[in-house]
Simulated assay, not measured.
Amino acid sequence: MLDADAQKPPMGKWPTPPFDPRFPNQNQTRNCYQNFLDYHRCVKAMNRRGKSTEPCEYYFRVYRSLCPISWVQRWNEQIKEGTFAGKI
């Protein structure tokens, strides 16, 4: 997985994630969760093919921007324990 510190843009360069027509409302909880799943699915698929995970960085940046850190930490712990409810 990508290191969070390595993915930080330079100071003052925190771009807002682009508009996603699948999530038109102000509540971006589903957008956060979907991008988290998409990132992990992308990494899994790229590793299986033996390719670079660089294209997955987009999903990483979006979910890191939208999701509360506590959610991401809990989801990552659940993935490690094998109790995560999402299908990756």
Rank of each mutant, 00 (worst) to 15 (best):
G86Q: 02
R64M: 09
M1L: 08
R22T: 05
T16L: 09
P10F: 02
M46Q: 14
W71E: 13
T83E: 11
D20L: 09
P24H: 03
W75M: 07
W14I: 15
V72E: 08
G50N: 03
G82R: 02
Y39C: 13
Y59G: 03
G50L: 07
T16H: 12
K51L: 07
G82M: 04
F60P: 05
R64E: 15
F84I: 08
M1R: 13
I79C: 00
P55F: 02
C32F: 08
E57V: 15
R41V: 03
Q34D: 05
Y39W: 10
W71V: 09
D20W: 01
P17V: 07
A85H: 14
I88S: 03
D20A: 09
S70A: 15
I79K: 00
A45E: 09
A4C: 01
F60V: 08
Q28S: 10
Q73C: 06
K44R: 12
K44A: 09
V62M: 04
P68Y: 12
M46L: 15
R48D: 12
L2E: 06
F23V: 07
S65G: 01
K87T: 12
A6T: 04
R41N: 06
A4N: 06
Q34E: 15
C32Q: 10
W75A: 12
R61A: 14
H40P: 11
P15N: 10
M11Q: 15
P9E: 00
R48F: 07
Q26W: 02
F23G: 01
V43G: 07
Y63R: 04
N25Q: 14
Q28Y: 01
E77Q: 12
K87M: 12
C67S: 07
N35T: 11
E57Y: 04
N27W: 10
I79S: 00
